[in-house]
Computed example of a mutant assay.
Amino acid sequence: MPSNLTRFEAEWVEPSDAVRDVVDTYWAVHWQLPLHEAVTQRIVDFPAITLSIESGDVPAPFVVTSVRPGAWSRVIRGSGSVFAIRLRPAGLRVLSNLDAAALLHEQELTHELDERSHRALHAIAAGSSVLDRAATADEIIRQMLQDRPITSAQILANSAVDALTASARVRSGRSIAAGIGTSERSLQRALRATIGIGPNEVARRMRLQEVIRRLSSPGADAAEIAGEMGYFDQAHLINEFRSVAGMTPGQYLRDVQRSLEELHLTPGATS
């Protein structure tokens, strides 16, 4: 394989304003590795459900993915591509008849599993490029939203994730609920119905995403980050990270860096 041949490309596309309550982002990756070569990626999930269109060396053509209880690994081999729709909490009910709480962590999205979302992904897959697929998805989802408007519970779940995105500090489910003007029980029901996990777990995932982002910056200081994010101390941060990822933040970042180097990328190349 020529040394200048692209091994891995990643791209993010913002949804249109008409579907921002349903879609967080569209993302796409394309890879082409030499025969017999494999790269293992270590992943801590963002707290969201994702629908994806996949081709090449992949598990299935259409996949629905929910939040896993801990960090997980995906092995990249051969060549392939993924176009994914990362949903806002309100998105699953608009695009499907699936039950968030009953989803497997990753499963093939067949016509039999859910006809509504399968039909949408089939139409989006006809696009010839990432931008074509994103534009098609915008229009299809806009129509689906007219057919199935967002409910008050879904708006509540979206608001909770927005609040946690704005400030990923350590907070209890009760304080999160109070901050958006609802009860902890109502928030619990709304998030479990839309994402499949409760507010404390959503908050934990948002914090870990922010920890990873901050620690990836040059000169990052873990103790300083722990204080800014409301942890008791650096050990508290490390223990919470280990409880989800099964390793310390430093070990996780080294694994990510190794994967990027194997794919001939730098950390900034995929953001």
Results as ranks from 00 to 15, higher is better:
Pro2Trp: 13
Phe8Lys: 05
Trp12Cys: 09
Ser16Pro: 03
Asp17Glu: 12
Ala18Cys: 04
Arg20Gln: 09
Arg20Ala: 03
Val23Gln: 00
Thr25Lys: 13
Thr25Met: 13
Tyr26Ala: 02
Trp27Val: 08
Trp31Phe: 06
Thr40Trp: 09
Pro47Val: 01
Thr50Leu: 02
Leu51Gln: 12
Glu54Trp: 03
Val58Gly: 03
Val58Phe: 01
Ala60His: 15
Phe62Gln: 01
Val63Arg: 06
Val64Tyr: 03
Ser66Arg: 00
Val67His: 06
Gly70Ala: 09
Ala71Gln: 09
Ser81Cys: 08
Ser81Gly: 13
Val82Pro: 07
Ala84Pro: 07
Ile85Glu: 06
Pro89Glu: 06
Val94Ile: 12
Ser96Gly: 14
Asp99Trp: 08
Ala101Cys: 11
Ala101Trp: 12
Ala101Phe: 05
His105Cys: 12
Leu109Gln: 00
Glu112Asn: 15
Asp114Ser: 04
Glu115Leu: 15
Glu115Asn: 14
Arg116His: 04
Ala120Thr: 01
Leu121Ala: 00
Ala125Ile: 09
Ala126Phe: 05
Gly127Ala: 05
Ser128Ala: 15
Thr136Leu: 13
Ala137Lys: 08
Ile140Thr: 05
Ile140Phe: 06
Arg142Cys: 02
Gln143His: 14
Met144Trp: 10
Ile150Tyr: 06
Thr151Cys: 05
Ala153Ser: 15
Ala157Thr: 06
Asn158Pro: 10
Ser159Arg: 14
Ala160Met: 00
Ala160Asp: 01
Val161Ile: 15
Asp162Ala: 14
Asp162Lys: 06
Ser167Met: 06
Ala168Asn: 02
Val170Met: 06
Arg171Gly: 03
Ser172Pro: 07
Ser172Gln: 09
Ile176Asp: 01
Gly179Thr: 02
Gly179Asp: 05
Gly179Ile: 04
Thr182Val: 15
Thr182His: 05
Ser183Met: 02
Leu191Ala: 01
Ala193Leu: 13
Thr194Leu: 06
Gly196Leu: 01
Pro199Lys: 01
Glu201Tyr: 09
Val202Leu: 10
Ala203Ser: 14
Arg204Thr: 12
Arg204His: 09
Arg207Thr: 09
Arg207Glu: 02
Leu208Ala: 04
Glu210Val: 08
Glu210His: 15
Val211Arg: 01
Ser216Thr: 13
Pro218Cys: 08
Ala220Thr: 06
Ala222Tyr: 08
Glu224Tyr: 12
Ile225Ala: 08
Gly227Lys: 03
Ala235Glu: 15
Leu237Asn: 00
Asn239Asp: 14
Glu240Tyr: 11
Glu240Asn: 07
Phe241His: 04
Ser243His: 15
Pro249Glu: 07
Gly250Gln: 10
Gln251Leu: 13
Gln257Trp: 11
Gln257Ser: 15
Gln257Pro: 11
Leu260Met: 15
Leu260Arg: 06
Glu261Trp: 14
Glu261Pro: 07
Glu262Lys: 10
Leu263Asp: 01
His264Asn: 12
His264Val: 11
Ala269Met: 13
